[in-house]
Design a protein around this nucleic acid. Structure first.
Length: 556
DNA sequence: TTGAGAACAG
């Protein structure tokens, strides 16, 4: 085939680079970038090209590279615009680089005089809340208003969620009910957040309240979607309020949730298909009428068979090299995809397929999918929820799942990771990865988990607090309490705020190791940080008290 | 640009 059919204009390349970035094919985006050089006539990357590449790097969890490209782009005289900032600020926030994010934000307002839009502001706001910088987040919200930015529903959702997750439940509720009363800028996601909160503790009356909210959602025309239903199911499970089950089953049966559930299933299915089907992913949804093969040939050029009316081979190249760093990345494009173990985004959504019933068959499907992905605890939870929901006929039992699948499912993934064969199994979900780390711990391989994490951290892969908490716990259980303790500084050094679980874990492992002074130190530190204890803290403190008492009774 | 599902005790 020839490359003749391909449009050789910048817009075409930009759209392709953008699309491949979205599909997590950073390698393709970079190859297309490199191919612009050899196009005939050669194309000079513009602001859109750079924006698309920065976004692709961010999606591929290469935020550090994105920052370099951003700097280079400026130094070549291309002025960043609001899309640049949307991408790069979002990337920094999602990887806890809040200092970078704020610096870029100031740069945007200052030297480049770009008027940021509500998206950029929301991104920063969310980042601050997620980094547990409550005061700064509230301050930033004021800045936003002062800058004359019109709040959106997402802004409010971000604030409501952020307040809840930073221990300000009353404030969050006040905001929600206020907005509800005024009937403005409130969408289904706000309801979903409220439902989650009501279900979280598993207190019966609160869960009942959540059901009422769900009904109101429905009445107002907001979709009661799978996320909301999942929260509710978990609430039912915790509270044992299966009397409420009737209502939700009804909703599942005849509301808009069903298509969502199916979409979720097909999403998981396609995630399971494995890397060998990735090429196909590109073909089936490629948005052009043109032939995908033409694009592929552009990426992996083949010798033209037909007449050679256009031979750009001796064209003077490299005169326009606007980004040495991008060139460098493009040369190693193949390597890039496998090294990005997981990405910044959460699970990707895939379009739904035909209608099916929400029955035992589907339950089994869910189970096998989660088990195959190594999500054992999710599988167990779902199993519990669905069986209690009353659909008869799953032949699985809790215990046999535990024993038979953990080893098979888990070890396979652990093996793949250990051998750095990202291609074999590519968990691009951080929760999956956390489960692998957890599995390693159960196998008594805390050091392996530790070295994997430090390896990842060297590569600049972003890690969240859950992953650190898991590792701290494992090191503690393996008797490496000093190493565990030292992780706290590492966490803080990365701009991540330790949370209640971090401190619970630290107190617990130190107490268990007989280091009562250390345990006490962490308890004080937790209080000093203004972190509220939770139900687990209580149990741990009871243990700590007993240990202290023991020590007192047998002095020396 | 926002919401679940992963981590701490027993």
């Amino acid at each position: 085939m020839s490359r003749r059919g391909l449009p050789s204009n910048i817009r075409f390349y930009n759209i392709c680079i953008h699309a491949f970035g979205k599909w997590r094919r950073l390698d393709m985006s970079l190859k297309l970038f490199a191919a612009m050089k050899t196009a005939s006539p050669p194309l000079v990357p513009d602001i859109c090209t750079h924006n698309s590449l920065i976004r692709a790097l961010v999606v591929g969890a290469r935020v550090a590279d994105a920052l370099v490209v951003y700097d280079e782009m400026k130094s070549f005289g291309i002025e960043p615009d609001v899309f640049t900032y949307r991408a790069i600020v979002d990337g920094c926030c999602k990887s806890f680089r809040m200092d970078d994010a704020l610096r870029l934000f100031q740069e945007m307002r200052g030297s480049y005089g770009v008027k940021g839009d509500v998206v950029v502001y929301n991104s920063l706001l969310d980042g601050l809340f997620k980094a547990k910088k409550l005061d700064e987040a509230c301050g930033f919200f004021e800045t936003m208003v002062a800058d004359g930015i019109q709040c959106s529903a997402s802004t409010h959702n971000t604030v409501i969620d952020g307040l809840f997750k930073n221990g300000r439940a009353e404030a969050a509720c006040r905001l929600f009910y206020d907005l509800r009363r005024k009937g403005q800028l409130l969408d289904g996601i706000a309801y979903s957040i409220m439902v989650r909160e009501f279900c979280k503790e598993g207190k019966g009356d609160q869960v009942a309240e959540a059901v009422e909210l769900m009904k109101e959602m429905e009445e107002r025309g907001f979709a009661v979607d799978l996320v909301t239903v999942t929260s509710l199911l978990i609430g039912f499970n915790k509270s044992r309020r299966w009397d409420l089950e009737e209502q939700i089953v009804k909703f599942i049966r005849d509301s808009s949730v069903l298509p969502d559930a199916i979409r979720w299933k097909s999403n998981m299915m396609s995630a399971l298909q494995g890397p060998q089907d990735r090429e196909k992913d590109g073909t089936s949804i490629f948005p052009f009428d043109g032939n995908i093969d033409d694009v592929m040939s552009l990426v992996n050029p083949v010798v033209c068979t037909g007449a050679n009316e256009e031979t750009p081979k001796d064209e003077p190249k490299d005169d326009w090299c606007l980004s040495p760093h991008l060139d460098h990345l493009a040369k190693h494009a193949d390597h890039l995809n496998s090294s990005a173990i997981f990405t910044i985004d959460r699970g990707q959504r895939v379009q739904g397929m035909g209608a099916k019933t929400f029955d035992a068959d589907m339950v089994n499907t869910y189970m096998s999918i989660f088990l195959a992905k190594g999500k054992l605890s999710v599988a167990c939870k779902l199993f519990e929820i669905f069986t209690t929901l009353g659909r008869k006929g799953t032949s699985y039992t809790y215990n046999s799942l535990m024993t038979s699948f953990v080893k098979k499912g888990y070890l396979k993934q652990v093996w793949a990771i250990l051998h750095e064969r990202g291609g074999q199994l590519c968990p691009n979900d951080i929760a999956t990865y956390n489960l692998i780390i957890q599995g390693l711990g159960q196998m008594g391989k805390a050091e392996v988990a530790g070295s994997i994490i430090s390896e990842l951290s060297k590569k600049g892969v972003y890690m969240d607090i859950v992953m650190y908490n898991t590792l701290i716990n494992q090191l503690g259980k393996a008797g490496k309490v000093d190493e565990a303790n030292s992780l706290l500084e590492q966490i803080i050094g990365r701009g991540i705020k330790p949370d209640v679980v971090t401190f619970n874990t630290l107190i617990n492992i130190n107490a268990k190791a007989g280091r009562l002074k250390e345990a006490d130190k962490y308890l004080r530190k937790m209080i000093a940080e203004g972190i509220a204890p939770n139900y687990a803290t209580e149990t741990i403190l009871v243990f700590l008290d007993k240990e202290i008492e023991k020590k007192r009774q047998q002095p020396r």
